[in-house]
Write a protein that binds this DNA or RNA. Structure first.
Lengths: 108, 108
DNA sequence: CTGGATCCTGACTGATACTG
DNA sequence: CAGTATCAGTCAGGATCCAG
Protein backbone atom coordinates (compact mmCIF):
# COMPACT_ATOMS: atom_id res chain seq x y z
CA UNK A 1 0.00 0.00 0.00
CA UNK A 2 2.72 2.41 0.98
CA UNK A 3 4.92 0.64 -1.53
CA UNK A 4 2.77 1.80 -4.39
CA UNK A 5 3.65 5.40 -3.88
CA UNK A 6 7.39 4.94 -3.94
CA UNK A 7 7.37 2.04 -6.36
CA UNK A 8 8.36 3.92 -9.43
CA UNK A 9 10.98 6.12 -7.88
CA UNK A 10 14.59 5.82 -8.95
CA UNK A 11 17.27 3.45 -7.76
CA UNK A 12 18.43 5.50 -4.83
CA UNK A 13 15.03 4.93 -3.27
CA UNK A 14 15.58 1.19 -3.06
CA UNK A 15 16.57 1.59 0.55
CA UNK A 16 13.22 3.11 1.32
CA UNK A 17 11.34 0.27 -0.27
CA UNK A 18 13.38 -2.08 1.88
CA UNK A 19 12.63 -0.06 4.97
CA UNK A 20 8.93 -0.18 4.19
CA UNK A 21 9.29 -3.95 4.49
CA UNK A 22 11.73 -4.48 7.33
CA UNK A 23 12.11 -1.00 8.75
CA UNK A 24 9.19 -1.33 11.11
CA UNK A 25 10.00 -0.97 14.75
CA UNK A 26 9.63 -4.69 15.40
CA UNK A 27 10.36 -6.35 12.07
CA UNK A 28 14.02 -7.05 12.71
CA UNK A 29 13.39 -8.34 16.20
CA UNK A 30 10.84 -10.75 14.82
CA UNK A 31 13.15 -11.90 12.04
CA UNK A 32 15.90 -12.27 14.61
CA UNK A 33 13.66 -14.45 16.76
CA UNK A 34 12.88 -16.60 13.73
CA UNK A 35 16.50 -17.30 12.77
CA UNK A 36 16.73 -20.46 14.89
CA UNK A 37 13.64 -21.82 13.20
CA UNK A 38 9.88 -22.04 13.34
CA UNK A 39 8.08 -20.26 16.15
CA UNK A 40 4.51 -20.21 17.33
CA UNK A 41 2.68 -16.95 17.77
CA UNK A 42 2.84 -17.09 21.56
CA UNK A 43 6.53 -17.95 21.44
CA UNK A 44 7.25 -14.82 19.47
CA UNK A 45 5.16 -12.78 21.84
CA UNK A 46 7.20 -14.16 24.72
CA UNK A 47 10.58 -13.88 23.01
CA UNK A 48 10.20 -10.27 22.02
CA UNK A 49 10.05 -8.01 25.07
CA UNK A 50 7.56 -5.17 25.15
CA UNK A 51 5.82 -6.05 21.92
CA UNK A 52 2.08 -6.21 22.14
CA UNK A 53 -0.30 -8.54 20.36
CA UNK A 54 -1.56 -6.03 17.89
CA UNK A 55 1.85 -4.95 16.68
CA UNK A 56 3.05 -8.52 16.41
CA UNK A 57 0.04 -9.44 14.30
CA UNK A 58 0.50 -6.37 12.16
CA UNK A 59 4.19 -6.91 11.50
CA UNK A 60 3.72 -10.61 10.84
CA UNK A 61 1.00 -9.84 8.32
CA UNK A 62 3.14 -7.23 6.63
CA UNK A 63 6.10 -9.56 6.45
CA UNK A 64 3.94 -12.41 5.20
CA UNK A 65 2.58 -10.13 2.49
CA UNK A 66 6.14 -9.31 1.51
CA UNK A 67 7.19 -12.94 1.39
CA UNK A 68 9.61 -12.82 4.28
CA UNK A 69 7.78 -15.17 6.61
CA UNK A 70 5.39 -18.00 5.91
CA UNK A 71 2.41 -18.79 8.08
CA UNK A 72 1.07 -22.26 8.69
CA UNK A 73 -2.20 -22.85 10.48
CA UNK A 74 -3.04 -26.15 12.13
CA UNK A 75 -6.74 -26.84 12.66
CA UNK A 76 -6.29 -28.10 16.18
CA UNK A 77 -7.99 -27.23 19.44
CA UNK A 78 -6.62 -24.99 20.70
CA UNK A 79 -5.44 -23.53 17.39
CA UNK A 80 -1.78 -23.52 16.47
CA UNK A 81 -0.06 -21.16 14.08
CA UNK A 82 3.57 -21.44 13.12
CA UNK A 83 5.74 -18.80 11.53
CA UNK A 84 8.88 -19.58 9.55
CA UNK A 85 11.32 -17.48 7.57
CA UNK A 86 11.17 -17.94 3.81
CA UNK A 87 14.33 -18.19 1.75
CA UNK A 88 14.02 -14.50 1.07
CA UNK A 89 13.82 -13.86 4.78
CA UNK A 90 16.73 -16.11 5.62
CA UNK A 91 18.93 -14.07 3.32
CA UNK A 92 18.58 -11.26 5.83
CA UNK A 93 20.31 -13.26 8.55
CA UNK A 94 23.90 -12.20 7.83
CA UNK A 95 22.83 -8.61 7.37
CA UNK A 96 20.93 -8.41 10.63
CA UNK A 97 23.71 -10.21 12.44
CA UNK A 98 26.21 -7.67 11.14
CA UNK A 99 23.92 -4.88 12.22
CA UNK A 100 23.63 -6.49 15.60
CA UNK A 101 27.39 -6.73 15.92
CA UNK A 102 27.74 -3.13 14.86
CA UNK A 103 25.32 -2.20 17.60
CA UNK A 104 27.18 -4.16 20.25
CA UNK A 105 30.40 -2.48 19.26
CA UNK A 106 29.26 1.08 18.78
CA UNK A 107 26.06 1.65 20.72
CA UNK A 108 26.51 2.92 24.29
CA UNK B 1 15.77 10.59 24.56
CA UNK B 2 14.01 7.52 23.28
CA UNK B 3 17.19 5.64 24.06
CA UNK B 4 16.75 6.23 27.74
CA UNK B 5 13.61 4.17 27.91
CA UNK B 6 15.01 1.10 26.24
CA UNK B 7 18.54 1.53 27.53
CA UNK B 8 18.37 -1.01 30.29
CA UNK B 9 16.49 -3.68 28.42
CA UNK B 10 18.17 -7.00 27.70
CA UNK B 11 20.42 -8.01 24.85
CA UNK B 12 17.70 -8.98 22.46
CA UNK B 13 16.69 -5.35 22.38
CA UNK B 14 20.01 -4.26 20.91
CA UNK B 15 18.36 -4.19 17.50
CA UNK B 16 15.89 -1.65 18.74
CA UNK B 17 18.59 0.63 20.05
CA UNK B 18 20.22 0.42 16.64
CA UNK B 19 16.95 1.20 14.94
CA UNK B 20 16.50 4.23 17.15
CA UNK B 21 19.72 5.48 15.59
CA UNK B 22 19.57 4.41 11.97
CA UNK B 23 16.02 3.10 11.65
CA UNK B 24 14.56 6.47 10.83
CA UNK B 25 12.86 6.69 7.50
CA UNK B 26 15.69 8.65 5.92
CA UNK B 27 18.78 7.72 7.95
CA UNK B 28 20.01 5.01 5.63
CA UNK B 29 19.45 7.08 2.52
CA UNK B 30 21.51 9.86 4.05
CA UNK B 31 24.30 7.51 5.07
CA UNK B 32 24.19 6.02 1.60
CA UNK B 33 24.56 9.46 0.07
CA UNK B 34 27.55 10.12 2.31
CA UNK B 35 29.48 6.99 1.35
CA UNK B 36 31.34 8.67 -1.53
CA UNK B 37 32.47 11.43 0.80
CA UNK B 38 31.63 14.81 2.22
CA UNK B 39 28.42 16.47 1.13
CA UNK B 40 26.92 19.86 1.68
CA UNK B 41 23.43 20.25 3.10
CA UNK B 42 21.94 21.26 -0.23
CA UNK B 43 23.71 18.40 -1.99
CA UNK B 44 22.06 15.93 0.34
CA UNK B 45 18.73 17.58 -0.17
CA UNK B 46 19.17 17.22 -3.91
CA UNK B 47 20.54 13.69 -3.81
CA UNK B 48 17.75 12.29 -1.67
CA UNK B 49 14.46 12.44 -3.54
CA UNK B 50 11.33 13.42 -1.67
CA UNK B 51 13.04 14.31 1.56
CA UNK B 52 12.05 17.65 3.01
CA UNK B 53 14.28 20.13 4.74
CA UNK B 54 12.98 19.55 8.22
CA UNK B 55 13.48 15.80 8.09
CA UNK B 56 16.96 16.17 6.69
CA UNK B 57 17.89 18.57 9.46
CA UNK B 58 16.34 16.32 12.07
CA UNK B 59 18.01 13.13 10.91
CA UNK B 60 21.38 14.82 10.51
CA UNK B 61 21.14 16.15 14.04
CA UNK B 62 20.16 12.78 15.39
CA UNK B 63 23.00 11.08 13.55
CA UNK B 64 25.45 13.74 14.65
CA UNK B 65 24.34 13.25 18.26
CA UNK B 66 24.94 9.53 17.83
CA UNK B 67 28.38 10.03 16.36
CA UNK B 68 27.60 8.72 12.90
CA UNK B 69 28.16 11.92 10.97
CA UNK B 70 30.30 14.93 11.68
CA UNK B 71 29.26 18.46 10.86
CA UNK B 72 31.60 21.23 9.79
CA UNK B 73 30.42 24.81 9.52
CA UNK B 74 32.23 27.38 7.41
CA UNK B 75 31.55 31.00 8.31
CA UNK B 76 31.13 32.11 4.74
CA UNK B 77 28.44 34.11 3.02
CA UNK B 78 26.30 32.34 2.09
CA UNK B 79 26.86 29.78 4.86
CA UNK B 80 28.36 26.41 4.05
CA UNK B 81 27.91 23.25 6.09
CA UNK B 82 29.57 19.97 5.26
CA UNK B 83 28.60 16.56 6.52
CA UNK B 84 30.95 13.59 6.62
CA UNK B 85 30.64 10.05 7.91
CA UNK B 86 32.63 9.27 11.04
CA UNK B 87 34.53 6.00 11.38
CA UNK B 88 31.57 4.61 13.24
CA UNK B 89 29.33 5.61 10.36
CA UNK B 90 31.65 4.21 7.72
CA UNK B 91 31.42 0.82 9.37
CA UNK B 92 27.82 0.75 8.25
CA UNK B 93 28.78 0.85 4.59
CA UNK B 94 29.07 -2.91 3.98
CA UNK B 95 25.89 -3.55 5.92
CA UNK B 96 23.84 -1.01 4.03
CA UNK B 97 25.31 -2.15 0.74
CA UNK B 98 24.28 -5.71 1.54
CA UNK B 99 20.83 -4.52 2.45
CA UNK B 100 20.70 -2.61 -0.80
CA UNK B 101 21.70 -5.68 -2.77
CA UNK B 102 19.10 -7.71 -0.92
CA UNK B 103 16.51 -5.17 -1.95
CA UNK B 104 17.54 -5.20 -5.59
CA UNK B 105 17.31 -8.95 -5.64
CA UNK B 106 14.14 -9.52 -3.69
CA UNK B 107 11.99 -6.40 -3.79
CA UNK B 108 9.46 -6.26 -6.67
C1' DC C 1 22.26 28.44 2.01
C1' DT C 2 21.12 26.28 6.24
C1' DG C 3 18.24 25.57 9.00
C1' DG C 4 14.24 26.90 13.10
C1' DA C 5 9.14 27.19 14.38
C1' DT C 6 4.44 25.71 13.75
C1' DC C 7 0.66 23.06 12.65
C1' DC C 8 -1.29 18.74 11.16
C1' DT C 9 -1.82 13.90 9.97
C1' DG C 10 -0.93 9.11 10.40
C1' DA C 11 1.67 5.55 12.56
C1' DC C 12 2.64 3.25 16.78
C1' DT C 13 1.23 1.98 21.74
C1' DG C 14 -1.23 0.42 25.88
C1' DA C 15 -5.08 -1.44 28.02
C1' DT C 16 -8.99 -3.95 27.92
C1' DA C 17 -12.64 -6.85 26.20
C1' DC C 18 -14.12 -10.43 23.07
C1' DT C 19 -14.25 -14.64 19.48
C1' DG C 20 -13.42 -19.29 16.91
C1' DC D 1 -4.19 -20.36 21.45
C1' DA D 2 -4.30 -16.93 18.10
C1' DG D 3 -5.97 -13.45 17.09
C1' DT D 4 -9.88 -9.09 16.36
C1' DA D 5 -12.17 -4.70 18.09
C1' DT D 6 -12.19 -0.34 20.25
C1' DC D 7 -10.74 3.84 22.72
C1' DA D 8 -7.40 6.88 23.68
C1' DG D 9 -2.80 8.74 24.06
C1' DT D 10 2.03 9.61 22.29
C1' DC D 11 5.25 10.43 18.78
C1' DA D 12 7.51 10.41 14.24
C1' DG D 13 6.96 12.37 9.77
C1' DG D 14 5.11 15.96 6.22
C1' DA D 15 3.96 20.85 4.64
C1' DT D 16 4.59 25.45 4.94
C1' DC D 17 6.41 29.71 6.36
C1' DC D 18 10.12 32.33 8.46
C1' DA D 19 15.23 33.74 9.89
C1' DG D 20 20.47 34.38 10.32
Amino acid sequence: MIDKKIKKSNERCALQEILSIIGGKWSMSIIYALFPGTRRFSELERLIPNINTRMLVKELKNMEANGIVSRKVFATVPPTVEYTLTTKGEKLEPIINELHKWGLEYVN
